[in-house]
Protein backbone atom coordinates (compact mmCIF):
# COMPACT_ATOMS: atom_id res chain seq x y z
CA UNK A 1 0.00 0.00 0.00
CA UNK A 2 1.62 3.17 -1.16
CA UNK A 3 1.66 6.41 0.73
CA UNK A 4 0.28 8.50 -2.19
CA UNK A 5 -1.47 5.72 -3.98
CA UNK A 6 -4.55 7.70 -4.97
CA UNK A 7 -2.79 10.80 -6.24
CA UNK A 8 0.10 9.37 -8.20
CA UNK A 9 0.03 7.48 -11.47
CA UNK A 10 1.57 4.06 -11.72
CA UNK A 11 4.84 4.59 -13.49
CA UNK A 12 8.10 2.77 -13.37
CA UNK A 13 9.80 5.87 -12.02
CA UNK A 14 8.12 5.48 -8.67
CA UNK A 15 9.41 2.00 -8.28
CA UNK A 16 12.88 3.37 -8.71
CA UNK A 17 12.08 6.15 -6.27
CA UNK A 18 10.87 3.56 -3.80
CA UNK A 19 14.19 1.88 -4.09
CA UNK A 20 15.96 5.07 -3.11
CA UNK A 21 13.56 5.84 -0.25
CA UNK A 22 13.73 2.34 1.12
CA UNK A 23 17.47 2.27 0.80
CA UNK A 24 17.64 5.45 2.84
CA UNK A 25 15.37 4.07 5.51
CA UNK A 26 17.03 0.69 5.74
CA UNK A 27 20.54 2.07 5.76
CA UNK A 28 20.04 4.59 8.53
CA UNK A 29 18.00 2.80 11.15
CA UNK A 30 18.36 4.76 14.34
CA UNK A 31 17.55 2.66 17.38
CA UNK A 32 16.32 4.15 20.60
CA UNK A 33 18.54 4.06 23.69
CA UNK A 34 16.17 2.07 25.79
CA UNK A 35 17.07 -1.00 27.78
CA UNK A 36 14.87 -2.71 30.33
CA UNK A 37 16.77 -5.73 31.63
CA UNK A 38 19.77 -7.97 30.99
CA UNK A 39 19.23 -8.05 27.21
CA UNK A 40 20.21 -4.39 27.19
CA UNK A 41 23.77 -5.41 28.05
CA UNK A 42 23.97 -7.42 24.84
CA UNK A 43 22.41 -4.52 22.98
CA UNK A 44 25.19 -2.29 24.31
CA UNK A 45 27.74 -4.86 23.19
CA UNK A 46 26.29 -4.69 19.69
CA UNK A 47 26.76 -0.95 19.68
CA UNK A 48 30.33 -1.18 20.94
CA UNK A 49 33.48 -1.69 18.92
CA UNK A 50 33.69 -5.48 18.79
CA UNK A 51 30.40 -6.03 16.99
CA UNK A 52 29.78 -2.45 15.87
CA UNK A 53 26.23 -2.26 14.61
CA UNK A 54 27.12 1.03 12.93
CA UNK A 55 28.57 -1.03 10.09
CA UNK A 56 24.97 -1.69 9.10
CA UNK A 57 23.79 1.87 9.59
CA UNK A 58 22.01 1.04 12.81
CA UNK A 59 24.49 2.28 15.38
CA UNK A 60 23.26 5.80 16.05
CA UNK A 61 21.41 5.20 19.31
CA UNK A 62 19.16 8.15 19.95
CA UNK A 63 18.21 9.18 23.45
CA UNK A 64 14.73 10.25 22.45
CA UNK A 65 11.89 8.43 20.71
CA UNK A 66 11.31 11.50 18.54
CA UNK A 67 14.51 10.85 16.59
CA UNK A 68 14.40 7.06 16.55
CA UNK A 69 13.21 4.66 13.85
CA UNK A 70 13.75 1.35 15.59
CA UNK A 71 12.66 0.39 19.07
CA UNK A 72 14.72 -2.52 20.36
CA UNK A 73 12.73 -3.77 23.33
CA UNK A 74 15.51 -5.40 25.32
CA UNK A 75 14.28 -7.05 28.46
CA UNK A 76 11.36 -8.34 30.47
CA UNK A 77 8.27 -6.18 30.01
CA UNK A 78 5.89 -6.28 32.92
CA UNK A 79 2.50 -4.63 33.15
CA UNK A 80 3.88 -1.50 34.72
CA UNK A 81 6.57 -1.16 32.05
CA UNK A 82 4.27 -2.06 29.17
CA UNK A 83 2.39 1.20 29.53
CA UNK A 84 5.67 3.09 29.24
CA UNK A 85 6.84 1.05 26.24
CA UNK A 86 3.50 1.75 24.59
CA UNK A 87 3.90 5.46 25.24
CA UNK A 88 7.42 5.48 23.78
CA UNK A 89 6.14 3.66 20.73
CA UNK A 90 3.39 6.25 20.32
CA UNK A 91 5.95 9.05 20.53
CA UNK A 92 8.08 7.70 17.68
CA UNK A 93 7.50 9.26 14.25
CA UNK A 94 6.59 7.14 11.23
CA UNK A 95 8.10 5.06 9.75
CA UNK A 96 8.91 3.06 12.86
CA UNK A 97 9.88 -0.50 13.55
CA UNK A 98 10.03 -2.76 16.59
CA UNK A 99 12.48 -5.51 17.38
CA UNK A 100 11.43 -7.89 20.15
CA UNK A 101 14.75 -8.90 21.62
CA UNK A 102 15.06 -11.91 23.89
CA UNK A 103 12.76 -14.65 25.09
CA UNK A 104 10.81 -12.40 27.47
CA UNK A 105 9.67 -10.00 24.79
CA UNK A 106 9.03 -12.78 22.29
CA UNK A 107 6.68 -14.77 24.52
CA UNK A 108 7.21 -14.20 28.21
CA UNK A 109 10.37 -16.26 28.46
CA UNK A 110 11.07 -17.80 31.85
CA UNK A 111 8.13 -15.85 33.29
CA UNK A 112 5.72 -17.50 30.92
CA UNK A 113 3.96 -19.58 33.54
CA UNK A 114 4.45 -17.94 36.92
CA UNK A 115 5.02 -14.33 35.97
CA UNK A 116 1.86 -12.76 37.28
CA UNK A 117 2.73 -9.33 35.94
CA UNK A 118 4.89 -10.14 32.88
CA UNK A 119 3.41 -9.46 29.47
CA UNK A 120 3.61 -12.69 27.47
CA UNK A 121 5.19 -11.13 24.40
CA UNK A 122 5.23 -7.48 23.42
CA UNK A 123 3.18 -8.20 20.30
CA UNK A 124 0.22 -7.97 22.67
CA UNK A 125 0.46 -4.19 22.48
CA UNK A 126 2.92 -3.10 19.76
CA UNK A 127 3.35 -4.47 16.21
CA UNK A 128 6.60 -6.40 16.14
CA UNK A 129 8.66 -6.51 12.95
CA UNK A 130 11.45 -8.84 14.02
CA UNK A 131 11.58 -11.39 16.80
CA UNK A 132 15.09 -12.20 18.02
CA UNK A 133 14.99 -15.19 20.35
CA UNK A 134 17.63 -16.00 22.93
CA UNK A 135 18.19 -15.47 26.61
CA UNK A 136 19.81 -13.11 25.93
CA UNK A 137 20.53 -13.30 22.18
CA UNK A 138 24.10 -13.22 21.02
CA UNK A 139 25.20 -9.93 19.45
CA UNK A 140 25.37 -11.72 16.11
CA UNK A 141 21.69 -12.58 16.49
CA UNK A 142 20.81 -8.93 16.97
CA UNK A 143 22.81 -8.01 13.89
CA UNK A 144 20.95 -10.71 11.98
CA UNK A 145 17.68 -9.27 13.25
CA UNK A 146 18.66 -5.84 12.00
CA UNK A 147 19.60 -7.32 8.63
CA UNK A 148 16.24 -9.08 8.45
CA UNK A 149 14.50 -5.81 9.21
CA UNK A 150 16.49 -4.04 6.52
CA UNK A 151 15.43 -6.63 3.97
CA UNK A 152 11.85 -6.21 5.10
CA UNK A 153 12.08 -2.45 4.64
CA UNK A 154 13.56 -2.86 1.16
CA UNK A 155 10.44 -4.74 0.09
CA UNK A 156 8.06 -1.95 1.15
CA UNK A 157 6.09 0.20 -1.28
CA UNK A 158 6.18 3.93 -0.61
CA UNK A 159 5.20 5.67 -3.86
CA UNK A 160 4.58 2.83 -6.27
CA UNK A 161 1.31 0.95 -6.52
CA UNK A 162 0.76 -2.69 -5.99
CA UNK A 163 1.30 -5.23 -3.31
CA UNK A 164 4.46 -5.10 -1.30
CA UNK A 165 7.33 -7.21 -2.43
CA UNK A 166 8.26 -10.33 -0.61
CA UNK A 167 11.37 -9.83 1.46
CA UNK A 168 14.05 -12.36 0.82
CA UNK A 169 14.87 -13.95 4.12
CA UNK A 170 16.84 -16.90 2.85
CA UNK A 171 20.17 -17.23 4.53
CA UNK A 172 22.18 -14.43 5.99
CA UNK A 173 23.01 -12.78 2.69
CA UNK A 174 20.64 -10.91 0.45
CA UNK A 175 20.18 -12.53 -2.90
CA UNK A 176 21.90 -10.49 -5.63
CA UNK A 177 18.69 -10.01 -7.54
CA UNK A 178 17.12 -7.60 -5.06
CA UNK A 179 19.36 -4.68 -4.30
CA UNK A 180 23.10 -4.73 -4.38
CA UNK A 181 23.38 -2.12 -1.68
CA UNK A 182 22.42 -4.59 1.00
CA UNK A 183 25.08 -7.08 0.18
CA UNK A 184 26.58 -8.36 3.40
CA UNK A 185 29.70 -6.51 4.33
CA UNK A 186 30.87 -8.97 6.93
CA UNK A 187 31.16 -12.68 6.83
CA UNK A 188 31.65 -14.86 9.86
CA UNK A 189 34.99 -16.69 9.80
CA UNK A 190 34.76 -20.29 8.69
CA UNK A 191 35.06 -22.85 11.48
CA UNK A 192 38.49 -24.42 11.77
CA UNK A 193 38.90 -27.52 9.73
CA UNK A 194 38.62 -30.77 11.61
CA UNK A 195 41.97 -32.36 12.32
CA UNK A 196 42.80 -35.16 9.97
CA UNK A 197 42.47 -38.67 11.26
CA UNK A 198 45.55 -40.42 12.51
CA UNK A 199 45.51 -42.96 9.78
CA UNK A 200 45.31 -40.38 7.03
CA UNK A 201 48.45 -38.62 8.25
CA UNK A 202 50.55 -41.74 8.07
Amino acid sequence: MGLFERSLPDVQLFKIADLAVNWGRASSLWPMTFGIACCAIEMMAVGAATFDMDRFGAGAFRATPRQADLMIVAGTVNAKMALIVKRLWDQMPEPKYVMAMGACTVGGGPYWKHGYNVVKGIDKFVPVDVHVPGCPPRPEAIIEGVRFLQRKIMAKRVLAKGAEGTPDFTGISVSPGTVGILEPTVRMPAPPAAPAAEGARA
Partner: peptide, 17 residues
Protein backbone atom coordinates in the same frame (compact mmCIF):
# COMPACT_ATOMS: atom_id res chain seq x y z
CA UNK B 1 -5.71 -15.39 40.81
CA UNK B 2 -3.59 -14.13 37.92
CA UNK B 3 -5.02 -11.06 36.20
CA UNK B 4 -6.19 -11.22 32.60
CA UNK B 5 -5.33 -7.65 31.71
CA UNK B 6 -4.07 -4.45 33.29
CA UNK B 7 -4.49 -0.93 31.94
CA UNK B 8 -5.48 -2.22 28.50
CA UNK B 9 -2.45 -4.55 28.30
CA UNK B 10 -3.34 -8.20 27.77
CA UNK B 11 -1.51 -10.42 30.27
CA UNK B 12 -2.82 -13.79 29.09
CA UNK B 13 -0.82 -16.44 27.31
CA UNK B 14 -1.78 -17.22 23.73
CA UNK B 15 -1.61 -20.99 23.92
CA UNK B 16 -0.69 -23.53 26.55
CA UNK B 17 2.82 -24.81 26.61
Amino acid sequence: VYPKEFGGINLEVDAPW
